Structures are given as structure tokens and as C-alpha cells.
Computed example of a mutant assay.
Amino acid sequence: MILSVLIVNDTRVDRHHGCSAVMQAIVRLLARNGVDRFSFLPAHSDWRKMSDFRRFVSDFDLVLVNAEGTIHHDREAGLRLLEIGGVTRSLGVRSALVNAGWEGNSPSLLSLLRNFDFISARDTRSAVRMRASGEVVRVVPDLSIWAARDEGFRPLRCNRDICKLGVTDNVDRFKSLFLEKLRHMNSGQSVSIGYAAKGTKGRLSFIRDGISIREDFSNPYRLVALLKMRNRLWKSSQEDLHRFIQEISGFSLLVSGRFHACTLALSVGTPIIALPSNTDKIAALFEDAGLDSWRYESVIDSDHIQRVKEAQWSDAEYQSLSAYLESASVLTEEMFSDLAKLMRSK
């Protein structure tokens, strides 16, 4: 039996290692469970403008919607993903919403979950919110964790003699500037979860992504600081996912405002403290992994960084983290096995 899957919200177009890891996991796990034919609907594309979308979708055994961090605070992009469930339901095509974060959404969005045949959230907080719909929602940790494991990485305890600090940016450019200041004060290394397309155009586009033309051009001091920071991130970026994870594994501490930098750091056992992103997804991840709350609730300054570099992981944290990562692998593989059974049950 030939199985075919349409993967909606292919986030690889964002040129982001977390997105690449998630998509790599989805494709590899579907293939290992007997899927022969794949089609992809890129992130940011609007299926509602495709005149033949219903006919196109009807050819597949499963429409898999990769939610990632899209469905929060009633965003139009989140609504667009959820509305696909109604189309698949009307056509009798199986559908799955996977790897979802969920925060700040209205009941109208919650009601759309009923159209999916399978639903998974990537953290317990999101699952609890989604279960208010009355639907069954599994908790399966973010798929980037499985991808790192499939690349051969394991959570090794850091050598305390290594004092190498890595610092990422944040989706909020003001928080990014704060993190950049900390990096400079503590002689840290810039870590870029994103990477540019090749050539001058790719570099300029990468630098431009972190700047608001409407707001920042009226503040020359901030504009210069942002340009310097984005250029430094560009210089530190790389396209290869395996090499990026290796880079993260070499730090004695990662200070991060990026969710997927956190998932990949945890996958290799790199100690971490975090600044919130655009939702509570980092706090939810750390809670599920059994990490101490000060890693995501404390005020981050230079003194805090030095204390954390000395503390590394506690024994309890490391044991919880190891168990979480092992469970993530099992739950992820079980989920894709069940999705294959769902397709074959038509």
C-alpha cells in the first residue's frame, strides 16, 4: 500500500535550525513508517488562495499540520492552519495537528480542534489548554529533540573546567539587544539559530530580519546596535544542523532567548538559562524537563551568569533531563507509528 502525506507549514523556508530539525524528524519518521510520497506546503503560504486546494488535498492519505510555534494569541497564521482541519474533515481525509504550542487563543480557535483526527502538543501547558476543547491531546516533546538524538547526540554532562559561554538572540529585538550586552560583558560567543541564504542578498536579508524599518530608523543609536548585532550573528551562523548542535554541545553555559536553541542544548546536556520568548514555551519546556525554575524565572545579569556557570546541573536536574529526553524519543516514535496506523485504517 502506497502512503502519501501532505505536510502543511514546512518551516524550512525560515532558514532556522530548529525548524530544520523538526522537519527532518517529520520526514524521516514518516518514511520509516512506510510513507512513500510527500508533498509540502511552505510556511507563510495561504492555502485559501489555492483554487484547487480541495482537489489537491483529496489525493492524500494524511494531511499533517506542523503547528510549531504558530498557534498563539489568535494569530491569523494559527487560524489558517487550524481551518485546514475543516477541509480535510469534509473530504474524508485523515488529518493530524502535531508539535503544537498553544497560548492565548480564544474559544473560537479551540473549537476548530474537533476537526482533526489526531492532536499532539509539545508541552504539558499547551496540552492542558487544548484539552479544554474536549479533544484528546497527547503530549509529545518538540520534534527537534528526536532529530538531535537521531543525529547521534546524547545529554553528556559538561566538563566544569570548560568556561565557554554561548549567547543567542531573541525574537524580540529589544531582548536581543539586552542579550547582546550580556554577551559582550561576559566575553561570550554569539550563537545564531538562524542562517542566511548564500551571497550578498542573503546576508542583507538576514541582517534586515532583525530590524523594524518603521521604528528603528528613527533611533540611530538603536539602529546601529541592531545592525552590529545582526552582522555578528550572521558571521557566527552556519547551515549545517549537525555542526550547529556540535557547537552548542561545546558550551559550559548557554544563555538563550530562543526556544529551539533550548531544545537542542538540552538534547546534548548543555546547561542553560533563558530569557522568555514570545510565549511561555521555554518555561513550559523547562518544567516538563524537570529543570529548576530559576533557570527561566530569575533576572539574568553578569553575576547570575557566573553563579550558573559554576553550578552547572544539579544531580536531580540531570536525572530528570535524561529521563525526559529518553521519554521524548519513545513518545515521538510511538506517535508516528500511530499516524501510520491511522492512515492504513481508512
Rank of each mutant, 00 (worst) to 15 (best):
L241A: 11
A311C: 11
S314A: 11
E215Y: 15
V308C: 04
A274S: 15
S320P: 09
L291Y: 08
N278T: 13
G210L: 01
A311E: 15
W294G: 00
L253V: 05
A274P: 10
S293D: 13
I272Q: 00
L285K: 04
H304M: 12
R295L: 13
P220E: 11
Y221M: 12
V299Y: 09
C262W: 02
W294K: 05
K235H: 09
G210Y: 02
A265T: 00
P220T: 11
F286S: 00
I248A: 04
L285N: 09
D209L: 02
G290E: 02
S236E: 05
S252Q: 10
L254P: 11
I207Q: 05
L241M: 14
I282Q: 03
D209R: 00
T279R: 00
V299S: 15
L241Q: 10
I213C: 10
R208Y: 07
Y296L: 06
R295N: 08
G202F: 03
I282Y: 05
W234M: 12
L275T: 00
P271Y: 10
D240M: 08
D301T: 13
K201Q: 13
V255M: 08
L254A: 14
Q238A: 06
I282K: 03
T263V: 13
H260C: 06
R307K: 07
L241E: 07
S267C: 09
D292F: 08
I272T: 03
E287V: 07
L223A: 05
E247G: 01
S314W: 05
F286T: 01
S256N: 07
F206I: 07
L325K: 02
Q246Y: 01
I272A: 03
M229H: 09
K201C: 07
S249T: 04
H242P: 04
I211F: 14
A316E: 15
L227F: 12
L325F: 01
E215I: 13
Q246H: 00
F286H: 06
T279C: 10
E239A: 13
S293T: 14
S293F: 11
F206C: 14
K309G: 08
L204M: 07
S293R: 11
R232A: 02
K281R: 08
K281A: 07
F259H: 10
S320F: 15
I211W: 12
L291M: 14
F206V: 09
V224M: 11
L253D: 06
D216E: 12
S237Y: 06
L254D: 11
G210A: 06
W313A: 04
R243L: 08
L266E: 04
S237Q: 10
A265C: 04
A316N: 15
L275Q: 01
E239G: 11
L253I: 07
V255I: 14
K201S: 07
T270E: 05
I245D: 01
H260D: 09
T270I: 05
S212Q: 12
F251Q: 01
I248V: 15
L266D: 02
